[in-house]
Structures are given as C-alpha cells and as structure tokens.
Design a protein around this nucleic acid. Structure first.
Length: 474
RNA sequence: GGCGGCAUAGCCAAGUGGCUAAGGCAGAGGACUGCAAAUCCUUCAUCCUCGGUUCGAGUCCGAGUGCCGCCUCCA
C-alpha cells in the first residue's frame, strides 16, 4: 500500500517516497522559546511526530529535525519584561519544552538545532545570497529581494502585485518590495548580537530554518511541515532564500496542519484565548489529549474544548478496560491448559484490522479513520475476551498484544499503566468477599465491596472469578 | 478588496460516483449479574438550500446561504 500525503505545493494528495533510498529527510518548524508551548504547538508536534513514527513503521529511516528559535524579537521583548537575559529565558523555555514534550509522549527528533548555535551557517548562507545578487542593504539590515526570485508566491499562491497592494507599510524604512524580508537584522544597543560582514546583528526569523535544515538534511528536504499559518510568509520565504542559494527544490512535500480553535475561533495572543499544554495536562492525561488531537484529520481545524476532551477521556476509559480484559484472561489461562483452544478465525481477523488501520494512516494520515478501526477492533475482541467464552487461543492473545503495540508505537494513545495487583490487604478482602458470596451473604459481600472501594480499588465479578484494579483519580 | 477552506445524527468526526452513510461521546431499550461493574446486542442521519451532470451523487458542476481562515507576528 502506498503512502499518500497532501502536498501544499501541489494542493493534492501525492504518493510519498523518499528522494534517496530509505532515508526520509523530515524538517518540522519548532517553537520560539519565549513562553510555554500551547495546544496549537502541541498539535503540530504530536501530529508530525506520529507521522514520523508511521513512516518508520513503513520501513523508512527518518532523519527528523526540529529547531528551537532561541533568538528573535519576542524573546528579546519578553526577557526585557522579566529582567533576565534572552539566553536565560530561551534556555528556561527549552527546558519547559522538554518537560511538556515528554509528558505528551512526543519523541525527540534526530536533531534539535538552535538558531544561536548556527550563526556561522546562517551568515554563510546570506553571503551566498549576497554574492548571487539576491540581497540589498537598508539601514544596516540585509534584505532578500523577492523581485529577483520569479517563483515567489508559489507555495501560498500569491502574486507579488497583490502583496504590494495589501501590504502594510513599515515604519522604519521603505523596502523595494513590501514582500522583501530581513535576512540579517542590525542590532540595537543592548541587544544580543553577533559579528557579521554587515556589522553587529542577528538573523532574521526565516533564514535559520533554511540554514539549519540544509546543514542537517541537505539542499532538498523530503518533508517540511508546520502549522498552516507558516505557509505565508515563513515557508514561502524559506523557499525563496533556499532555492535562490542552491538552485534546487527546497522541499518535495510541504505539510501543514490546521488550527486549534477555541470556541470556533483561532487561538491567538491577541484574542487572549491561549491554552497551554501545561494547563491542559493538569486536567487530562496525555493519552486523552492525543486522542482528542487524532479525532480530527490533521488538516482540519479542531476545537479542543471540554466536550471533546471529555468524550476522548471516555473512549480512553474503554481502551483501559480492554487492557484489563485481556490482562485478566491472560492471567487466567497462564497455568491452565484446560482454557486453551485454537481460534483461527480471530487470528486472521487481527490481520484485517491491522491492514485497515494502516491503510487509514497511509491515506494522508487519516487518524480519525484509524481510530474508527480501533473502535471496531475493541468491540470485536471484547466479545472474544468475554470470560463467559471459556476457552482462548494464546496465539490470538499475543497477536492482539502485537496490534496494540503497533497502535501505541504509531499513535501513542494507550494509557501508561495497566492494572497491577500487588496490594495483599486488598487481595485478602477480595477473597473474604468471595467466601461471603459463596455463602450468599450478600450484605456482607456488598459491605466488603464498599470497603475495597474506600481503599481505592474496584472489584468486579466474572464467571472466572473476581478481578480488581486500582481506581484512577481524576 | 484579492485568495482559500468548511457545512454529514444531540455533540465530535470519517467518507471524494455504486452493497445496509465508519468510529467515538451522550441518550433509550435489552442480555449478562445476587446486586453492581465491565462487556455485548438493539435503537438513534437520506448528508445546509436550490438547480444541473449521470443508469446512479453526501461524494462531480453551478448558484445561493452560513461559518472560518490567509493576505501582518503567529503552530
């Protein structure tokens, strides 16, 4: 089965394959570290990390690069407000990023380059552009001259004339063309700066991604991804400066995910409706947040509200129960061959689910559809795992585990821990309750169930005997 | 003003010309249970409106309505 991905460049789904062998060169625009990441950031990182996992599952080796923008206007401004150095601020929020990313089960990329550690590469790239005549200077800034790059606008489907009309006039100086953007910014007194052929300054926002992606992945990326709002101007500018410098296509596939909305409106600083990952994960488990993110296709907007989160939490609860169900049966048949038999049909059924699941993801990473397959899988095998069934096939159980493992490896939505029975005191109470039940002393049995509950455990009766597990606090 | 996206059940959300319109959440009824819990079963939509293409359309085309976004920092 082929992997199809919607390419922003061509506005259609295309069959994906790497440009060279098994290596996928994958670049995702990372956070500007001036604050905690919000759930809009989270969506980008979760979705593309999972896409990477899927590509790896397909047998490709993915070299993933996600940058940290650790120097820019927002960082400088924020640092000033807080009375610390921009470096300290950036360092602090990079640490906070790691915290949130780990919490959300976002895997580390192969490389996480920082802008400030690649100033030389950035300068070298600007020099090339300068030599090729793509730049001009204005009051100490070095700008990219978009009029020299004829295909400017190909990603965002804009033409320069319209941009001229619509563009806002900048206060400091007049550009040759309003779409021209800064490659190297002259430092104001007191600002962090680096020496360069154009004087003390710092890189513009767009140039770092070009410089770093090319350094780690070469002139042409297989995939370049980010939020939909990066199409213009960020990715448009990256294309211009990169292709102007190398003469080669900057990226074969551009992937963009939709917004996270709050009350049907774009989450943004100006509307003051930012929700941080930190806030949300205090209330919801990471697997719940991931489930919610995957409940809509990555290119659609999503409203991550209480309603959706609650419904995702309920679904997750069902997944947890499934894990208890299989764990219980595994436990019961471990030393009891009387409970074994061969189940061919179920065995093969798992292959079908597995194929459907992967087909869904191979079709432009259709996670809602993949979750639909998971839902059907749960229903089918909950029937199979019913204690009333009486006999099971070890190989089927193993294969169910394999399926779950695959789902977890790609989507990372399974709850962290399964039921563990270690509390001897609880065990004793459960046994005592069983004796009461055998004596049909229902009052005593119910009393004991309450007692067990008050100690934080749930006990359930099945034809194979009672099972119990620790309740979750939420 | 220019450009783009979306409109499917109470809510969320797949589906891109053809068997009974996935799946999740919520609701109702039932099976199972000493009672529960879990689980399963049943039930719950003709797909914004109008017109067109077609043997056949949620799926294609046109018009309309509504919502959202980009054109400016932004994931």
């Amino acid at each position: 089965m082929e992997t199809q991905l919607f390419n922003t460049l061509t506005q259609k789904k295309e069959t994906f394959f790497p440009q060279e062998g098994d290596k996928v060169r994958f670049y995702v625009c990372g956070p500007t570290v001036y604050d905690l990441i919000h759930i809009g950031n989270a969506r980008v990182f979760v979705v593309f990390d999972s896409l990477r996992r899927f590509l790896e599952h397909r047998g490709w080796e993915v070299i993933m690069v996600q940058n940290f923008t650790d120097i820019d206007d927002k960082i400088i401004k924020r640092a000033e407000e807080l009375g610390e150095s921009p470096q300290e601020l950036a360092e602090r929020y990079i640490a906070e990023y790691w915290h949130d990313a780990e919490n959300l089960k976002i895997r580390k990329a192969t490389f996480h380059p920082r802008a400030t550690e690649h100033i030389e590469d950035i300068i070298a790239l600007i020099k090339i552009l300068e030599e090729k005549g793509y730049t001009y200077e204005k009051e100490g800034d070095v700008l990219f001259d978009v009029s020299r790059f004829p295909s400017y606008g190909k990603l965002s489907r804009k033409n320069l004339d319209e941009l001229v009309e619509g563009a806002r006039v900048e206060a400091r100086y007049e550009k040759k063309n309003p779409a021209d953007f800064v490659l190297w910014k002259k430092a104001k007194p007191g600002e962090p700066s680096w020496e360069s052929p154009w004087g003390e300054g710092r890189p513009g926002w767009h140039i770092e991604c070009s410089a770093m992606s090319m350094k780690y992945l070469g002139p042409t990326l297989d995939i370049h991804a980010g939020g939909i709002d990066l199409i213009f101007p960020h990715h448009e500018n990256e294309i211009a400066q990169s292709e102007a410098a190398t003469g080669k296509p900057f990226a074969r596939f551009f992937l963009h995910n939709g917004y996270v909305n709050i009350d049907q409106e774009k989450m943004s600083k100006s509307l003051g409706n930012i929700v941080t990952v930190r806030e949300l994960t205090q209330k919801y488990e990471p697997s719940v947040l991931r489930l919610a993110i995957f409940s809509a296709h990555y290119r659609s907007p999503i409203n991550l509200d209480e309603n959706l989160l609650q419904s995702s939490r309920q679904f997750e609860e069902r997944i947890k129960n499934f894990l208890r169900n299989i764990g219980f049966i595994e436990e019961k048949i471990k030393d009891n061959s009387a409970l074994l038999k061969e189940d061919k049909e179920e065995y093969h059924k798992i292959d079908e689910f597995s194929r459907s699941f992967q087909e869904a993801l191979a079709d432009d990473f259709n996670t809602p559809q993949a979750l639909g397959v998971l839902g059907e899988f749960l229903r089918f095998f909950n029937q199979y795992l019913s204690p009333r069934r009486g006999k099971w096939d070890l190989q089927v159980l193993e294969k169910i585990r394999d399926f779950l493992k695959m789902v977890e490896e790609i989507l990372g939505i399974l709850p962290g821990k399964e039921m563990e029975i270690s509390d001897e005191a609880i065990k004793k109470l459960v046994e005592e309750r069983e004796r009461a039940r055998r004596d049909k002393d229902w009052e005593r049995a119910d009393q004991l169930r309450e007692e067990i509950k008050s100690r934080g455990y749930v006990v359930e009766d099945t034809p194979l005997g009672p099972r119990f597990f620790k309740m979750e606090e939420q």
